[in-house]
Amino acid sequence: MHDPDDPTRYQEVLVSPMYLAGSGGTGDAGFAPIAHWPHHYLDEGPCQLLVTSPDGRIRVGWFGDDFEPWKISAAEDAVSAPRWTATFNHVTPPELVAGLTTALAQDYAEAAACEDDARFLASPSLYWRDAVRPLTEAGWTRDGGAELGTVEITAPGDGQAGILIDNRQRGADAETVELWAGPPGWGTRAEAIFTRRTPTHLIAATAAVMANAGPVIRERHQVARQMEHLVTLTPLVPATPVADSQVSRAPTPLDVRRTAVTQAVYRAARAPRTTADLRVMAAQSRSAGAAQHRSASLAPAAAARPPATSPTPRHGR
């Protein structure tokens, strides 16, 4: 718990690595790639906001008060049961969710343009290595101590993130892939769970964001105390006292350079991690109408409230 009287409580900081930054309490980044899709605001029920593809086949639900605030799925048509489902818990950075929603937006745009079969309904690869290639190419390594019938790839250095693939489960809706980050615990372990029929390239797109350990912006109080020793926090605007003799002095060339560097890092951390085409789509989505919907959709997305009892982590984590 952060001291409410701490003057740096709301200070914006760069948090690195990204996968340990926590959720920040809202889903802005996760919704950005699909902000141009239809929004459905639900007054009743646990799902507060449902964003769908124009044909209703892709559904992105925000359950802001639940342990798993994100539930994303795709179906053959708007009224069919989901072919696959992905869930993200309340600790998962929304930038990681954006890895999936970005890929879904691109798949849908390509399918609409070419009137071709949708990749977001493709059968998964027979080879588990295809799903983890962005991680292995970034130096993540296989954990030799994983249980028989499972494969686990972990982050180099801190070992505080990984992907677990469970090949023992055969049901169509079995939860077979888990991206995780952080030590076990209700407030520290981020989890993204994919069911068995999730297209491999969508898992890989999500994993690719996790492989990029670059910083993201959070307010200092949004980083859990028990995580601070695992991350690097860099204030965007250093809180340094100003001596009386310096109050009226003009900025030096060094001051100007430092300001430029800080602003460049700030812009890089704020920029969505998408392909060039999707950056254009995201820019278009921030039209006047989309902006009005965005402010309304994220109002109920306050920080997820903990349940009365802590749930048991998946896979023993």
Rank of each mutant, 00 (worst) to 15 (best):
residue 150 T to A: 07
residue 150 T to L: 07
residue 153 I to R: 00
residue 154 T to G: 01
residue 154 T to W: 03
residue 155 A to S: 15
residue 156 P to I: 05
residue 156 P to R: 06
residue 159 G to W: 06
residue 161 A to D: 09
residue 162 G to Q: 06
residue 163 I to S: 02
residue 164 L to F: 10
residue 164 L to I: 09
residue 164 L to Q: 05
residue 164 L to T: 10
residue 168 R to A: 08
residue 169 Q to K: 15
residue 173 D to K: 15
residue 173 D to F: 13
residue 175 E to W: 11
residue 176 T to G: 02
residue 177 V to G: 00
residue 180 W to R: 05
residue 180 W to E: 02
residue 181 A to S: 15
residue 181 A to F: 05
residue 181 A to V: 04
residue 184 P to T: 10
residue 185 G to E: 08
residue 185 G to V: 11
residue 186 W to Q: 14
residue 187 G to E: 13
residue 187 G to C: 01
residue 188 T to K: 08
residue 189 R to Q: 14
residue 192 A to S: 12
residue 192 A to V: 15
residue 193 I to L: 14
residue 193 I to R: 12
residue 193 I to W: 06
residue 194 F to W: 13
residue 194 F to H: 06
residue 194 F to I: 07
residue 197 R to I: 00
residue 198 T to Y: 02
residue 201 H to C: 00
residue 202 L to M: 07
residue 204 A to L: 03
residue 205 A to I: 05
residue 205 A to W: 02
residue 206 T to D: 03
residue 207 A to P: 01
residue 208 A to Y: 04
residue 208 A to S: 15
residue 208 A to F: 05
residue 209 V to E: 00
residue 210 M to V: 11
residue 210 M to I: 06
residue 211 A to S: 10
residue 212 N to Y: 02
residue 213 A to I: 05
residue 214 G to T: 09
residue 214 G to F: 00
residue 215 P to K: 04
residue 216 V to N: 04
residue 218 R to F: 05
residue 219 E to Y: 11
residue 219 E to S: 09
residue 219 E to T: 14
residue 220 R to D: 03
residue 222 Q to G: 04
residue 222 Q to F: 01
residue 223 V to N: 01
residue 223 V to I: 15
residue 224 A to E: 15
residue 224 A to P: 04
residue 225 R to E: 14
residue 226 Q to M: 08
residue 227 M to I: 10
residue 228 E to N: 08
residue 228 E to K: 12
residue 231 V to P: 08
residue 232 T to W: 02
residue 235 P to N: 05
residue 236 L to Y: 05
residue 236 L to P: 07
residue 237 V to E: 14
residue 238 P to T: 11
residue 238 P to M: 12
residue 241 P to V: 10
residue 242 V to A: 07
residue 244 D to A: 12
residue 244 D to S: 04
residue 244 D to L: 12
residue 244 D to F: 08
residue 246 Q to E: 15
residue 247 V to F: 07
